[in-house]
């Protein structure tokens, strides 16, 4: 393995490892659940992306073909991380998890907690059909 490729793979691996570590430190150290939600969903996803690119470069160099599995893992993580964060934030608002004092726009939480019942949706659809 040539020195340049080894250097690229090592740099990408260390970049990714540092970002994953920063995400976990943020998960432990930040003050509030809503603030804490930012660290793993952004920093850790970026770090894992760097590690996946390093793995792709390494496998291309070893076996001579680009494997699709890493691309699939990257795509899946990039799609699913915001979905998980959204559902967890909604669950936290539903349970009225304690906020930081200086959170702005606190009054919007009450309107975000309102959820339409499924029956109301059905009635609306039936009304639309009748009209």
């Amino acid at each position: 393995m040539s020195f340049t490729i080894e250097l690229i793979i090592s740099a990408l691996l260390i970049f990714g490892g540092l970002f994953v570590l920063v995400g976990s430190i943020g998960l432990l150290r930040l003050q509030d659940f809503y603030v804490r939600l930012h660290a793993p969903t952004k920093a850790t996803t970026l770090g894992l992306g760097a590690i996946l690119i390093a793995s792709m470069v390494f496998m291309y160099h070893m076996h001579g073909y680009v494997s699709i599995n890493e691309l699939l893992i990257t795509l899946f993580l990039v799609i699913t991380a915001p979905v998980t964060a959204h559902i967890l934030a909604k669950a936290a608002m539903h349970h009225r998890v304690k906020l930081m004092e200086r959170t702005r726009n606190k009054h919007l939480i009450e309107s975000a907690r309102i959820q339409l019942q499924p029956e109301q949706d059905n009635e609306k659809q039936e009304q639309n059909k009748e009209v």
């Binding site: 990714g16 490892g17 994953v20 995400g23 976990s24 998960l27 659940f33 804490r36 939600l37 793993p40 850790t44 996803t45 770090g47 894992l48 590690i51 893992i73 993580l77 998980t84 967890l88 669950a91 936290a92 349970h95 998890v97 304690k98």
Partner: peptide, 19 residues
Amino acid sequence: PHAVDRILALDTMYINSIA
């Protein structure tokens, strides 16, 4: 302190184990 914190920590552990 709350269950959502634990779920978030578990999700991060999944991602770290993938790495």
